[in-house]
């Protein structure tokens, strides 16, 4: 995460947003971690006074999340909380979770190994890098289109699953009601025979 923070400080060479790891998921932040993260430049306000309050509230939030079955780590990482009974089996739910987490991670980064050719190595590197970047430019344009398509698919799946879940719940309640009515009818019929 520190490397990520350093990447975004400057105005150059920033990795496009959709393709970064969203946040550091380590849950137990120390007071030093928080002091390093929060900056208040007004000399009248001391960050050290705020940090214990932040830590206490974070702990309370983690307890609340556990109590209601929410995945606090997923939320802290900006992902979908697993807070409701899924109408799907575990394997399908896992695959959907992976899809949600990765639908927009299609862009390629520069991955150029250093040339070990003696003497002319730096020259070789200077030629290879722009060629790689040129290829990346066209690949990433296509990747962007793929990402748009993936987003449509993920959105459609999310809506479909939600609709299925609502329909399942409606049908479950209907079945429950019919069961109760059937039981009632059977009880009445038995009573009349007796």
């Amino acid at each position: 995460m520190e490397a990520n923070a350093q990447r975004v400080e400057g105005s150059q060479g920033v990795t496009p947003p959709a393709y970064r790891e969203p946040g550091d998921a380590r849950m137990n932040l120390s007071e030093d971690d928080l002091e390093a993260m929060i900056e208040i430049r007004d000399p009248e306000i001391d960050v050290e006074d705020i940090v214990p309050q932040v830590r206490a509230r974070l702990r309370a939030q983690h307890r609340r999340a556990r109590g209601i079955g929410l995945d606090c780590e997923a939320l802290a990482r900006g992902q979908v909380p697993s807070d409701r009974a899924s109408p799907l089996d575990d394997d399908l739910e896992d695959n959907l979770e992976r899809m949600r987490a990765s639908y927009n991670r299609v862009v390629v980064d520069l991955s150029l190994t250093k040339s070990r050719v003696p003497i002319v190595g730096p020259l070789v590197q200077r030629i290879r890098e722009p060629l790689h970047r040129l290829a990346m430019y066209y690949v990433n344009r296509s990747a962007g289109r793929q990402s748009r398509f993936n987003a449509y698919v993920v959105g459609a799946m999310a809506n479909l699953i939600r609709s299925l879940g609502e329909e399942n719940e409606r049908l479950r309640q209907e079945i429950s009601r019919l069961d109760a009515r059937l039981t009632n009818l059977e009880t009445n019929a038995r009573g009349k025979r007796e």
């Binding site: 932040l29 928080l34 939030q61 900006g78």
Partner: peptide, 8 residues
């Protein structure tokens, strides 16, 4: 804030 921790 210097890092994007959504909980913080």
């Amino acid at each position: 804030v210097k890092r994007k921790r959504y909980d913080v």
